[in-house]
Structure formats: C-alpha cells, structure tokens
Amino acid sequence: MACFLAPMTEAIVTTVIQKAVKKKEDSSEGKETVNKIPLSDKLRWLNGMLWGGSGLLAFEHLWHGEITPFFPFLTAARDPADTAEMLHEIATSGSAMAILVTAVWTVVAIAADKLCSAGRPAVKKAGASS
C-alpha cells in the first residue's frame, strides 16, 4: 500500500547524515590518512539504493493506483480501516525492506574496506613518528 515510505524515510535521514559526514571529512582533509573508503562515499551507496529502490517502488504503487497526484496522495488514507492496514504494512514490510537494504549495504561496505586494505600497503596516520 505504501511500504516504500519506510525506506524513503530512511533515505532522507541517511542523506542528511551523509552531507554532514562529507562536510566533516572535507574540513579534516589531510589530517589523517587511513586505509579505508571514506564513510561519506559508503553512505552514498546506501542513499543510492534507498532512493533508487523506493523511487521505483513508488512508481509501482502509482501503477496499481495506490498513489494519486492529489490530496491525500495515498488512496488508503481515505478510509480509516485501509489507513490502519497501510500503517501496518509500512511497519512490517516497509521496515523489513529498509533493514534488508541496510544489511546488504553493511556487508558490501565491510567487504569493500577489507578489499581496500588488502590491496594497499598499510598507511600510517600522518604525523605519527616511526
């Protein structure tokens, strides 16, 4: 009914976090060099999957007539019984979608870090004495 709203909400939150992390990384650039992919880059992957996936799911809901271009935008919001069912679906299917995407992203991010550190010789923190 509107399960895509859960990953879309997560996408909004992670986009804000990604912007903040990117800002922080830019301001501390050059201070330290570690053998890892920047967190902001990894968060960009998560944002891409969440925005892309929920966007295509929103199109599917439009296809099935569950979203309308006029208020209240969700057809299930017109009837209280349908609204309750919709909220239940967002809480169950929607949350499961968001959790699965985040879990897959976590695995990919850890694997990418491992590959990155295995491919390069260890880089010590700048300024560290030998």
Binding site: P7, G48, G52, V101, V104
Partner: peptide
C-alpha cells in the same frame, strides 16, 4: 552506470521482501 546499479539493486531487495511476504 552505477546509478542504474543503485536503482535496480535497491528495488530488487525491496521487491524480494514483498515476494517473501
């Protein structure tokens, strides 16, 4: 092409949950 990867993998994972349900 990475943009397509995000969209297709994201949607695939979400529809997988739908299919399991």
């Amino acid at each position: 092409v990475g943009v397509l990867l995000y969209m297709f993998w994201g949607a695939s994972l979400m529809w997988l949950v739908d299919a399991v349900v």
